[in-house]
Simulated scan of single mutants.
Amino acid sequence: MKTAQITRILIGLALVLAVSMVIPMPPAHAASRNGACDSGEFCYYYNSNNAGSISDFPAELLSLANYGTDPATCYVFMTKGRSGYNQCIKNSAASVWNRTSETVIVYYNSNYDASVASQAVAPGFKGNLSSQLKNNNASHRAQSTGEPPAHPGPYPPVVRTLHQEWAGEGKCLDSDYTGEVYMIDCNGGNYQKWIMYKRVGVGGEDPMVIQNVQTGLCLDARDRDWNTTEDVYTHPCNGGERQLWHDLGAGLDLREPGVRARLMNDYYNNCMNALSRGTDGVKWWPYLGDTCAPDGWGLQWWSRRV
């Protein structure tokens, strides 16, 4: 009897060991994530209206350039018993909840590339991704990180401050969460920092998409109203023609040090000018009311401060 009991025990242990060897282990990065959206986390949901399985990201994972697509190693939805469980999150999220204290930007492409689309998710926001980002999420970044990491391709994105030298003895292009764009004294803050992406092969001249570091919104041009100068603003990044800008000048690239150039909107073919408005003498305003001057009229010249 003892021999038979020992044999049964050994067989049982062998079966347990065999089963444990074939059960896939979760990726190492899953250790600090539990499928619940806790305070201080940024979370993706598989379904709209914050339904379905959850993929939660604590503070140390608030910036991720690539989610991966291999089921064995990718970031997945982790809430068991809900739709989407254990699926890779890349291009599979429909809604978000930002339970952190800072804005998190969701990107259409990997490596924080906003050249097609991006969405700035404000602290506390709970709801659906935009129509462009729904099921098109490939990376996310906390806005406070500022300079994006290395990016593939011939034109890595860079962060620059746009300085208007002729405007009130020098002003820097600034913006806010409402989409208003203006120029005030240069202060080095994130509202005055712009990420410049080159769209290789678009329009034949590699135009730029220009995204504000703080808000995550992209420099855009409104429908023209010849009675107003408020035609330059920021808008969620969508890769459209109105969000494409050319730095005019033979071989000039505003992304490089020591360069002064004009910024022409791809849609209107007009250059961004500086205009003083109001009596406080503090704010100047950009507008597209003039064609690009062949001689580089002073209020059309922009340079990089950093």
Rank of each mutant, 00 (worst) to 15 (best):
A293S: 15
A72D: 08
E41F: 02
V213N: 09
A36V: 15
D220M: 02
R160Y: 10
Q214F: 08
N270A: 04
M183G: 10
A250N: 15
Q143E: 06
D56R: 01
Q243A: 00
T229G: 12
P27H: 02
N190Q: 13
S32F: 09
P152S: 14
H151E: 03
G258N: 14
G249M: 07
A122R: 15
N128M: 07
V259R: 12
N273C: 09
P71W: 05
N109V: 01
P71Y: 09
G52K: 01
G52S: 02
N34R: 11
L133P: 10
R99V: 09
K2Q: 13
G124P: 03
G239D: 00
H151Y: 02
N47F: 04
G127D: 03
S118P: 05
A122P: 10
A150N: 13
F77E: 05
S131N: 12
L254I: 15
V76I: 14
Q300Y: 08
S39G: 06
I210D: 07
N86D: 14
M208S: 14
M208Q: 13
E165F: 11
L219F: 00
V282R: 14
N190C: 08
Y108K: 03
G84F: 00
L17K: 00
C218R: 05
N136F: 13
I11S: 06
Y85C: 02
M183L: 13
T100L: 02
D231R: 04
Q132A: 15
A4E: 10
L17D: 07
Y75M: 14
P236Q: 01
M183N: 08
I195S: 10
L62V: 01
F125P: 15
P294L: 05
T145I: 13
T69M: 05
E102A: 12
D225F: 07
A117M: 09
S131P: 02
P156N: 11
I54A: 00
A142F: 02
D174Y: 07
V232R: 00
Y268K: 07
N111Y: 08
W194D: 05
R222C: 12
L217F: 06
W97D: 08
V213Q: 08
C218Y: 04
A18N: 03
L275K: 10
F125E: 05
M264E: 15
G251R: 13
D266P: 01
C88S: 02
C271T: 13
P24H: 05
V116A: 11
N227I: 03
E41A: 05
N109H: 12
Y67N: 03
G146N: 11
L162A: 04
N47K: 14
E205D: 12
T100P: 03
L288R: 07
H151R: 04
I195W: 08
G296H: 11
A274K: 08
Y197P: 04
C271S: 06
R82A: 12
R262M: 15
N227E: 05
A274F: 12
F57W: 11
R82T: 08
N270W: 06
N91K: 06
C186E: 11
G289V: 10
T215C: 09
V19L: 15
N86V: 01
T73S: 13
A14K: 07
E169V: 11
K2M: 06
D206K: 05
Q87S: 10
T178I: 09
T161H: 09
V232N: 06
R260F: 10
Y75K: 11
L219V: 03
R82N: 06
S63C: 07
L252R: 10
